[in-house]
């Protein structure tokens, strides 16, 4: 046996090396995050409006001191320090895939506890929300309106109405049917008994804006 090893030690050590490298590649190293949802499933998840939480509901829960309310603020630490909602945890967007953050989400996923993301506006949190869904955290939700809207609460209904403050981002502001009609209108002509009078709307002069 010893003679054999002596004679072929190069080959043997090469073999050993290869086996070790393979083991390292397969088992060791930082495990890559994987998508748990296919792109099609991700698109389907978008249609699920159950993951969107109204800021009014969050507001109520914060007032009541609801222990089941888990908030994650995805803004950077400075903005978080200036003001945040309730007992929110701060995990800036880029740190969402850090070990600490992933462990946090893992724990909640195991316990099947919902956690609500929010950002400065809804847009800041909705991207991360969709990505977290795709890597398998189906218990993550997103608050509509963002901190920009939340910090105005409680809102007087008439004030909100007057200023068109809306937290439903995808609600169309304009009545598109009306708008569509308007863009094709021609000034109406009004007929009088004797002579037709053409109605020409007077164009408002654009202000020169003042200046020196």
């Amino acid at each position: 046996m010893k003679k054999f090893i002596k004679k072929n030690w190069i080959l043997l050590s090469a073999l050993l090396l290869v086996i070790i490298v393979l083991i390292i590649l397969m088992a060791g190293g930082k495990p890559d995050l994987k998508y748990k949802l296919s792109p099609q499933q991700a698109v389907a998840a978008l249609a699920d409006t159950g993951s969107q939480v109204s800021p009014l509901v969050v507001y109520e829960k914060v007032l009541k001191g609801d222990k089941g309310l888990l908030l994650v603020d995805v803004r950077n630490t400075d903005e978080f320090a200036k003001g945040h909602i309730g007992n929110a945890l701060n995990i800036p967007v880029l740190e969402l895939f850090s070990k600490r953050s992933l462990d946090f989400f893992d724990e909640l996923a195991d316990a099947k506890e919902p956690v609500i993301l929010y950002g400065q506006d809804q847009l800041q949190a909705s991207g991360p929300w969709l990505l977290l869904q795709q890597v398998g955290f189906r218990n993550v939700e997103v608050m509509q309106g963002g901190f920009d809207f939340y910090k105005q609460l409680p809102l007087n209904d008439s004030v909100a109405e007057a200023q068109h403050i809306c937290w439903k981002a995808e609600m169309p502001v304009l009545d598109t049917a009306e708008f569509g009609k308007k863009t094709t209108t021609v000034p109406p002509t009004i007929k009088q008994e004797k002579k037709p009078v053409k109605v020409v709307p007077v164009k408002k002069e654009t202000s020169s804006g003042g200046g020196c």
Binding site: A160, C166, M171, V173, L174, D175, K182, P201
Partner: peptide, 15 residues
């Protein structure tokens, strides 16, 4: 005098 219907008061939009 021709009155134009104000366009902001959208009937379809809002919360």
């Amino acid at each position: 005098k021709v009155e134009r219907k104000p366009v902001e008061k959208s009937s379809g939009g809002g919360c």
